[in-house]
Design a protein around this nucleic acid. Structure first.
Lengths: 218, 218
DNA sequence: TTTCTGAATTTCGTATACGAAATACAAGAA
DNA sequence: TTCTTGTATTTCGTATACGAAATTCAGAAA
């Protein structure tokens, strides 16, 4: 029997809500975070808000102004590119590990995942597409059996989400993205690691190019 | 003229002190963190302590017991191995980037760094050796010009420090480690990227083997 | 003796209070 | 008018207060 977990604290809930607001684009880069205002809106005292902001500051989603309070961090194109550069090394590596360690029901998981992805593309629901894109990659990290890779990418993903939202909202088709996911899985299931790694590398590079072009526009 | 920076808040100072206590091994894995006790010892109220602990929890250095308060996270051998697996992909990649982007005074920086490293080996000062080992690798990340890699490794490094302390305190010579650093720099300065990458890969693997063996002993 | 039970204690999360520093703004000087 | 300067307001960080939940432990029941 599982132990009963205590429910999330107000501080944690506040953190999650703020993080999501930032990553979904609801709070724009540069926007000031006023503790009183947030506390009032969430119907809590300033204490959990202050605590949540400390965590956000430590993970780089907000930054000190040097003056009063914090603002949502800017999405710098350089930072974005550096994350994709990191991914271009890590994700093919994860594919290699996944090939060695993937569970027996990997094919089944993959089919399910891809199906949900294509449904999202059909539905034109942008935020669902972003979430499923992450879920796809996290599935691979899971197969790779390396928690350090998963944690690293989880943090970076939130930074990417902020940029992706901008891009996808501008109507860039995520159809090609899921075609690439299809091919990655196909190669992996055929145990053609070299090809799977290469498809992944290209997938990342294409996503980077598409996004960077749009980011530098605005 | 540079702007005057506000001094670190008590919350941030408390966080830094606790993080260091955890990573240096002063606080052992499993040890309970009592907010009142810490507050009294640091001569602050519980508020900054609570805030600091929230940040430590988010970054995985402490974990909820499900009961009351938090404890220092266990150093799991699996987690340790996964970080080194991550490094084995990232660090050679960083070398490749560093080769392309290193600054003109890289050779000078490297000589200085290596000299300080060898002095530390001679001095037998364990914590200095650990710090300089990190500084060496961070120098490479700096040359690589990729902030995402640097941030990723900075977080993971604190987890590594906890394990390294155990190993180095048991008298494992860090002499070989600096010999390897020497060879990495030599290859990089000769622009032999393939060799430099390979030396780095081996450096990581050897460090992993040494540490893992000792970790599983205790 | 050992096991159970519930009151006392501890210790957390959160609310509220307070002082300090920054911003906003109005009134006077140029 | 525009610039300066002193004051009121805002808003942060931190201290303190308080209620709730978990732990501890003394005393009763077995």
């Amino acid at each position: 029997m599982d132990a009963i977990k205590p429910p999330k604290t107000l501080s944690e809930q506040t953190h999650d809500i703020l993080l999501n607001a930032i990553c979904s684009g609801e709070f724009e880069p540069g926007q000031r975070l006023n503790q009183d205002e947030i506390a009032a809106r969430l119907q809590v005292s300033r204490q959990p808000v202050n605590s949540a902001i400390s965590v956000l500051k430590a993970s780089g989603f907000v930054e000190d102004t040097g003056r009063r309070g914090v603002v949502v961090s800017q999405i710098s194109v350089d930072q974005f590119l550096s994350i994709f550069e990191l991914r271009s090394a890590l994700e093919p590596f994860a594919i290699r590990l996944a090939h060695q360690r993937k569970p027996v029901d990997a094919a089944k998981q993959a089919q399910d995942m891809l199906k949900r992805g294509w449904n999202a593309v059909a539905s034109k629901d942008v935020s669902l597409q972003i979430n499923l894109d992450y879920e796809f990659h996290e599935m691979i990290y899971g197969w790779a059996g390396n928690p350090a890779i998963r944690d690293t990418m989880r943090t970076n993903w939130n930074h990417i989400r902020r940029s992706m939202g901008v891009v996808l909202r501008r109507g860039v088709a995520s159809k090609t993205s899921w075609e690439e996911h299809d091919r990655i899985i196909a190669a992996l299931m055929r145990s053609d690691v070299e090809l799977a790694e290469d498809e992944m590398r290209q997938h990342i590079e294409r996503a980077q190019e598409k996004t960077a072009a749009l980011l530098s526009e605005c």
